[in-house]
Amino acid sequence: MLEIKNLHSSVTDDSNIKILNGVNLSISPGEVHVIMGPNGSGKSTLANLLMGRPDYEITEGEIKFDNKLINELPTDKRSHLGMFLAFQYPVEVPGVRPWQFLKASLDSKYEALDQEKISVREFNKIFEKNVEEVGIKSDLIKRSLNEGFSGGEKKRNEILQLKILKPKLAIMDETDSGLDIDALKVVSEGINSMRSEERSFLIVTHYQRLLNYVKPDFVHVLIGGEIVKSGRSELALEIENSGYKSYIT
């Protein structure tokens, strides 16, 4: 489903700082991959780059999604292909309500796929059901998107979007950071409930904590913009015990 080959990137400002130095990664349908790494290792850059964030530039290598080269594809088109990024810091969007936002989002997807848009009534049902499942308070959901939401509420809202947009590949950028135990459970339940044979996850995280609830198929260690080690879920425990020191050269 996702094929990353020899990916290099730098920031598109004057500094030209290199962040990724040849990342290789392959994700098949239904797999859950976890990327771990210390601060500044390039984890978030990789997540953002996969979604096409315009201020990072691919200097070498390629990203293929469903066998299609997407290096130059705009962010919204990647979303239409079935990619999703849960943000580390979901932004506040004044004056735009979550309902309206998600409806517009779904509409754009169906339009891109040349499918008929979902009716307001039908969308209401889906929306209300998922809001309840994710446990977002009903007064909160009437406010502007993420405005005045706590850190945990913002992350719940990301899970709500994940559940409604149903992507093929969900990239979770430190979705677990800054969460209390209840919110962490909601996030991991959200991920688990969305696991299926067709849907893959790429989970970027600092901590092993989330992996107590979500069992990954593969764990990769990213250091200095390169994947230095890959393994099964035990690798996460190993890192939790001994840290990243042994991988830093």
Partner: peptide, 25 residues
């Protein structure tokens, strides 16, 4: 914010319109 909206499938132009209107809302 623009990137956030685009990552949910909204094209750049629609995202801008939504954000301008949102500011006024």
């Amino acid at each position: 914010t623009l990137f956030y909206l685009q990552s949910r499938g909204l094209d750049l132009e629609t995202a801008k319109v939504i954000l301008i209107k949102g500011f006024a809302e």
